[in-house]
Design a protein around this nucleic acid. Sequence first.
DNA 1: CGGGTGACAACGT
DNA 2: AACGTTGCCACCC
Length: 118
Amino acid sequence: MNESLNTAAQRAAAIRKVVRAIKRGNFASYGEVARRAGLPGRARLVGQVLREAGDDRRLPWHRVTGSGGRIAFPAGSRGAREQLRRLGREGVQSRGQRVLAKPQASSARTLDALLWKI
DNA sequence: CGGGTGACAACGT
DNA sequence: AACGTTGCCACCC
């Protein structure tokens, strides 16, 4: 089931697939995307693939960040503003060059309430 | 084969 | 939190 990933094209395809799987309002780091694609330690390759993809609408590139939610583009650059704008539209909060993890309002009690329909 | 590069990560200061 | 270093790895001369 694990694709071969022997060729550059296969690796790129695997990476794009993982990026497409990131849902609205969520984000993942380059390193995380690489791991999910079966390519641990190859975060830079993810950046390379996204750069090649350019403005492909099928790819939610804005949902990929540096480690810890850091925006990889230079602060204030076109890319950084665009990425933050798109993430903001999806409800992702940010503080400067960093996007914040989705607030986990689910305390154990609240989770129980959801699960047990209390 | 060798050196430079980069939408990176982890760690230290 | 913001940089600087170092380790990485795929690509491209």
